[in-house]
Amino acid sequence: MSRAQQDALSRTALAVFRLNGQFLSVSERLAEPAGLTAAWWQVLGAVLPEPLPVAGIARVMGITRQSVQRIADLLVREGLAAYEPNPAHRRAKLLTPTPEGRAAIDRIDPGHAELAARLMSELGGQDAFEETVRVLRRLSAALDAIELEARESDG
């Protein structure tokens, strides 16, 4: 690997770490009026389209199952989500939002929509925004492929 490649990797990682921090900060601000944290919003958001087991949520989010389990249990305790039986796996219950959880997410929507519009404007329009998403997904897929290859060679 050349020094230029290493520098590019370092700059990319630092930019993504900064971006992660920025997204967490803005997410906390958006979620707070709804009585949520960014992490609660993230887990609830993962199960809005369909109920998922904790391990499935962790895969989608790219974090540990234990982290998701802790948040899921808190959401259930607060009445924002519920566990339901999983026909595919007796012990791995499915997490689903309750009406209260959906209502909390709905309260975030106006701020979320405003931020999306402002970001689109800052990036130069819808096409530029979509290109940003494509590049980030491509980077994520490349890292997934490298990790899979490393796991296969280790085991």
Rank of each mutant, 00 (worst) to 15 (best):
E100H: 00
V16H: 12
L24C: 08
V54K: 09
A145W: 12
S27T: 08
H89T: 03
G45Y: 06
A81M: 05
E78L: 08
A82K: 11
L119N: 08
R11G: 00
R151W: 07
E130C: 09
A81Q: 01
E122H: 13
L52F: 07
G111L: 08
V133Y: 10
V26R: 13
V47F: 03
I105M: 15
R138F: 15
R118G: 15
M61Y: 00
H89F: 08
Q126K: 15
A145M: 11
I57Q: 00
A34R: 00
G111C: 05
E100Y: 05
G62S: 05
V16P: 03
I57E: 00
L119D: 08
L9H: 11
A34S: 04
R90K: 12
L148G: 09
A81H: 01
W40C: 09
E131N: 08
L95N: 01
M61Q: 12
A55V: 10
W41T: 11
A55E: 14
G79N: 06
L136I: 13
R151F: 10
T98D: 04
T132Y: 10
G124S: 02
H112S: 13
P87F: 01
A128H: 05
E78K: 11
R134M: 00
H89N: 14
R65I: 02
G111E: 05
V26S: 09
G79T: 09
A104P: 01
I108L: 09
G125M: 05
P110N: 04
Q126E: 13
L115C: 07
D144K: 10
F129N: 00
E149P: 03
I57K: 02
F23H: 08
Q6R: 10
V68N: 05
P51A: 13
S27D: 06
G124R: 06
A46R: 06
E32C: 03
L136M: 15
Y83D: 04
P99Y: 06
R59T: 11
D7K: 14
L14I: 08
L139C: 07
R138M: 12
A8L: 14
H112A: 14
A72I: 05
G35R: 06
A34K: 03
P110C: 06
L9V: 13
V135D: 06
S27M: 09
L24D: 14
D127K: 14
Q69T: 15
A117R: 15
G124H: 05
D144R: 13
I71D: 01
R91M: 11
A116K: 14
E149K: 11
L74G: 07
E147M: 09
A103W: 02
A55K: 10
R91Q: 13
H89C: 07
L95F: 11
G125Y: 03
V26E: 14
D109Y: 11
S27N: 04
E122Y: 14
R151E: 14
E149C: 03
A39E: 12
V26Y: 01
D7P: 02
H89I: 01
P53N: 13
L123H: 00
A39G: 00
R137G: 10
P85T: 08
S121G: 09
V68D: 03
